[in-house]
Design a binder for these strands. Structure first.
Lengths: 338, 338
DNA sequence: TTGAAAGCGCTAACAG
DNA sequence: CTGTTAGCGCTTTCAA
C-alpha cells in the first residue's frame, strides 16, 4: 500500500500537509489547489491510512469489542448488527468475544486494553456471573459499557424497556380474557428478569389481579429450563390458562414441554414470549411474541461507549424507541373453559 | 501500560535484550540470570506488548476477519467458535463481518488488508453472490480462505463432507423402508447444494433407485423457501414419503408447511435435515438431523489461512473428522401405507 | 553476551 | 500557507 510519504511526494507537498488534508484538519488553511493535488494523489495511489501507524501515534486503536455470553441465538444477530453499524459509522472496527473467556480469565479485558488491541468494551453479562464478580470486572472503568443489564452502583449501560415488555405481554393475555396468568422468568439475580417480572406484576395489578407464587417460575432463559418450568406449571392447581415466558428461546422449549404433557396450545394454554426472532414464526404453533428493539440497544451501546471514550459523562440508557411491539401469531387465544 | 523500555530499565538491560527475551528469540544467547531479571521485571510491571507498535514494525496485524452472510443462525455460532479458538490459539484476534458489506463494496476486503487492520480473511460465500463475482472477489489472493464452499479455479478452501452428509440422511430414510424420497436442496449455483444432492443421488442409486425430478426442489436454504418447496412436494403424485432437507433452517420451515398442509410427521412424511442445531430438539416433532462438524471447519479454516500467510502452499480441505453423524429424533419413521 | 540505533507510518507541535 | 521534526513502542541488524 501507498504510504503518506508517497502521497506527499507525488503531490509535491510535505507529509504534514498531506496528513492534514486527508484528515480534514479544520484549522488547516491551505490553498484549494494544493489540497486538490493531495486528494488527487491519494486517489490515484489508492491510499488508505495505515492502521498501526495511526494507532501507535494516537494511542487509540479505533477498535472495540462486543463480549456476549451466547452467539448461538438469533437475538445476538440483532445486537451485533446494531453494534457493527454504529461502530463502522464512527470508523471503528468491532471484535466479537464470548464471555466465558472473560469470566475464566479475570483481567482479559484489561489486558486487551493494555495491549492496545481495543479501546473499550460492550459487555453483555452472562447470567452465571455473580453481581459481585461483575462489579469487580467492570469496576468504574469508563471503557466498559454494559448492555441489556445494568448494575446498581455504576453508570454506563444500555438496556431494553423490560418493564414495558413484560407489561405488554401480560396485557395481551389479559386482553384475551385470561385471568390465571403464569410467568416463566429468568434467574433471580438477573436484573432483566426482575424488570420483566415487574411489568408482569404491574399489568396484573392494573387488571385487579395479584401475582401468585404458584404461577411463577424463575429457572433461567434456556429452552430446557423453561421446558421444565412449563411442565411444572401445568401441574399447578388450578393450572394457568396463559403463560408469559420472559425469553423466546425459553418459550421454544416451553412449547415442546407443554405439548409433551398433552396440552393444546392455545386451547388449553396460551404462550407469549418476550423478544422476537425468526424461529418464532416456525414453531408449532407459531409463537406470539413481544418484539424488543435489540438492534437499537447494540447501536446505542457503542455510541455510548465511543462517547465515553471521548470524554462524555457516564449515563444509563433505556431504549424505548421503537417501543416493545406485540407480534401476534398462533400460540395465544382466549382461555378455554375448564 | 508498561513499555518495553520500562522493562529494560527495571531489569537493567537494553530494550533489545528485553525484546528478545520476551519473544523467546531462539538464537539469543543470554545468561540465565539476565533472562530472569527481564522476565521478573515484565511480570512485576504486568507487561503486555503493545499491539500497534508490533504491528507497525512487523507489518502484520495478527488479526483476521471472518466474513459470513448470516449471523442469525446458530450454525454460525459453531463456525465462530472454531475460528475463534484457532485464532486465539495462534495469538490472533478475530473480527466478524457480514458479507452484505463485502458484496456492496467490492474492494472492502482489499482495503481492510491495505489499512493493515487484518492480515487475511475467512470468507463464507453468500448464495446470492454469483460465481463470477466470487472469483473476482477472491481472485488468487492467498490472504483469503473460503469456507463451506469452494470454487473451481482456486485452491484455498475448507468444506464439509457434504456428499457424505447427503448420503447419510438419505440412507437413514432408506433404512426405515422409504422408497419415495424427495430432496429439498439449495440453489443451483451453490456447490454445497450440489454436493449434498450428489450424496442423495448416490444413496438412491446404491438402493437401486433413481432420482426423479418431480421429487426435487432447489429453492435455497431459507425457512420460507423450504416451506414452499415442502408444500409443493406434498402435491406431487405420488407424493414422497420421506424428505431430505439440505439445511436445518430450511427444515424448520418445511415442518411448518407440512403441518399446515394437514400431513402428519412422520406418519405421512418423514423429514431429515442436514446440520444440527439446538432448535432442532425443540421443533414439533423434534427433528432428525445429520450433525456436521462445522466447528472444525471454522477451526481448520483459520489454521489454513494462518498457514498460507506464513508461506505454506494452497490447498483445499474437506473436513471429515468427525464424520457426519445421524441424530435421530422424532421426525422420521417408517413410511405409512398409502 | 549485550547494546545502540534505525525505522515501520503516522500526527502534531513548532518554525518558517 | 507549508515544511521539519520528534516520537508513539516495537523488532532487528550490526557492532562491540
Amino acid at each position: 500500500m501507498a504510504t503518506l510519504a508517497e502521497i506527499a511526494e507525488r503531490a509535491g507537498v510535505s507529509v504534514s500537509v498531506a496528513s492534514r488534508v486527508l484528515n480534514c484538519d479544520p484549522n488547516l488553511r491551505t490553498r484549494p489547489e494544493t489540497r486538490d493535488r493531495v486528494v488527487l494523489a491519494a486517489k490515484e495511489l489508492n491510499y488508505t491510512a495505515n492502521y498501526a501507524g495511526r494507532a501507535l501515534r494516537l494511542s487509540r486503536s479505533k477498535a472495540i469489542a462486543l463480549i456476549v455470553p451466547d452467539v448461538s441465538t438469533p437475538l445476538f444477530a440483532d445486537l451485533l448488527a446494531g453494534a457493527t453499524d454504529a461502530a463502522s459509522g464512527e470508523d471503528h472496527t468491532l471484535l466479537v468475544g464470548r464471555s466465558e473467556r472473560v469470566v475464566a480469565d479475570g483481567d482479559l479485558l484489561r489486558r486487551l486494553i493494555g495491549e492496545g488491541r481495543v479501546d473499550g468494551f460492550v459487555l453483555q453479562r452472562s447470567d452465571d456471573l455473580s453481581d459481585q464478580a461483575l462489579e469487580s470486572l467492570v469496576a468504574n472503568d469508563a471503557r466498559i459499557v454494559l448492555v441489556a443489564s445494568r448494575t446498581a452502583h455504576r453508570k454506563g449501560s444500555v438496556v431494553l424497556d423490560d418493564v414495558a415488555g413484560g407489561r405488554l405481554a401480560t396485557e395481551h393475555l389479559l386482553g384475551l380474557g385470561h385471568r390465571r396468568i403464569a410467568l416463566i422468568g429468568g434467574v433471580d439475580r438477573s436484573d432483566i428478569a426482575r424488570r420483566r417480572e415487574q411489568g408482569y406484576t404491574e399489568a396484573l395489578h392494573c387488571a385487579g389481579l395479584r401475582k401468585r407464587d404458584a404461577w411463577i417460575r424463575r429457572l433461567g432463559y434456556s429452552p430446557d429450563a423453561s421446558a421444565a418450568a412449563a411442565a411444572s406449571l401445568l401441574e399447578a392447581s388450578p393450572p394457568p390458562t396463559g403463560i408469559v415466558v420472559a425469553n423466546v428461546n425459553g418459550a421454544i422449549g416451553a412449547l415442546t414441554a407443554i405439548r409433551q404433557a398433552g396440552a393444546e396450545i392455545p386451547e388449553d394454554v396460551s404462550v407469549v414470549a418476550i423478544h422476537d426472532q425468526w424461529m418464532a414464526a416456525h414453531t408449532w404453533p407459531p409463537l406470539t411474541t413481544v418484539k424488543m428493539p435489540f438492534y437499537e440497544v447494540g447501536f446505542e451501546a457503542v455510541r455510548l461507549l465511543l462517547g465515553r471514550l471521548s470524554g462524555e459523562p457516564a449515563k444509563d440508557i433505556v431504549v424505548s424507541d421503537p417501543p416493545p411491539q406485540l407480534v401476534v401469531r398462533a400460540s395465544t387465544g382466549p382461555p378455554g373453559n375448564y
